[in-house]
Write a protein that binds this DNA or RNA. Structure first.
Lengths: 217, 217
DNA sequence: ACAAAAGTGTTTTATTTACACCCATGA
DNA sequence: TCATGGGTGTAAATAAAACACTTTTGT
């Protein structure tokens, strides 16, 4: 998934079934690999994407007739690529805005919706933004990424503060040159951590402050 | 999973591999069923559990050698049974406290941990409590269930208020008789909804109040 | 009357959103 | 010096946790 608007990488099927429709990249699980290794391999081999910043399981899709012919059970993944990475793509492969998908093969549209939902949720309560952003960025660039992914305009001020309070951001000391129109140069930041973790431990029904009164932990 | 303490239903393997160790119920996916139908069928047929209040996918476990012999890819589920339901169990099958598991077969202990984590999280931001509780209950009974599942003592006062504010609870009008020691009779409640939904839309980075300033929804 | 359990009122604390205002730069 | 972003200070809003206190029952 990528930036400016949130995008998915799809390839256009040449053959039946569902010729000409757009498909999520993937393939068969090999005998000696687990599903995550497998999806990474497929992405590298088939669409030449090797710079995934984050990968996680979404769900298993297993309706008996989800695909014509032999029965196929698929494990769907959410895989993210930073906005500054632009892998060279094969001819039949293209990025598509998530909010404006072409006709998709099989149940792939519902898989994409599920991925979008997962990403949106995690932007709120984890540091998953690191997976969308370049190594260094200004707050307003980051704001753009969050806005694109979430589908509504995020306030740069508040984004700053939420991420800062959680200790996710770190100034690099550098500043970015202003555009031709002028304006104060923006400070550059980076994410402190480059792997996903939950940063907003669920706000509700949290353990009591003081003594642990109750049962086993 | 069940109540007083949170428990998992396990059966003891008679045969190798991993004879005598305890196993999560499950089995092979049939040709004409999806994974959720399949796990419900397995639970009904093999351990006679038919009253699941909630079922959801957890994750796929696919390490090539997670099970000796032929390669097995498993889709793990979280399945909940209300605390008042006590299904008759086969002889080799028993409930075990999640915090004190016997030696388990294969990677089943990590599956159970994952399930516990999922349940604990969802107790905070969804109405999933309905799946643990009987049709009608007092707040203090519900407090007991939440405490057992979460592993720490939850305040009845605050649990009340959080669930009430969200509109999840509904008084039945009935009251429960006090115990032998006296005390004010407790009002009975029920959950308004009996299927899971997210009730605490993530608090952070939510859309602006007023105009929708930004991009596509 | 008193103990026990339930339930309500109120204060405190945490955290975010909203908004006004100040800062640094280019033309 | 003014337009254009960038950044900070501060107030308002929200929601939950903590705790004191009242209510209703059995003995």
């Amino acid at each position: 998934m990528r930036a400016d608007s949130l995008q998915v990488l799809l390839w256009q099927r040449a053959l039946e079934p569902h010729a000409h429709r757009w498909s999520l990249p993937g393939g068969r699980l090999g005998a000696t690999e687990d599903v995550e290794t497998s999806i990474k391999r497929q992405l590298a081999e088939k669409v030449d994407v090797r710079q995934l910043s984050h990968v996680e399981q979404l769900a298993v899709f297993s309706a008996p007739r989800r695909v014509p012919g032999e029965r196929v059970v698929a494990t769907a993944f959410l895989g993210l690529v930073p906005s500054d990475v632009d892998p060279g793509l094969p001819a039949d492969t293209r990025w598509h805005p998530v909010d404006d998908l072409p006709p998709t093969a099989f149940d792939h549209d519902s898989i994409v919706l599920r991925a979008r939902h997962r990403l949106r949720s995690k932007l709120s309560y984890t540091n998953i933004g690191f997976a969308l952003a370049p190594p260094e960025f200004t707050i307003s660039a980051l704001r753009g990424l969050y806005s694109a992914a979430l589908g509504y305009r995020v306030s740069a001020t508040n984004l700053q503060r939420v991420l800062a309070r959680r200790g996710l951001l770190e100034p690099t000391g550098q500043t970015a040159a202003p555009g031709r129109a002028g304006g104060r140069p923006a400070a550059q930041f980076r994410f402190v951590e480059a792997s996903m973790s939950v940063t907003d431990p669920f706000a509700v029904l949290r353990p009591p402050n003081q003594a642990r009164t109750g049962g086993p932990s």
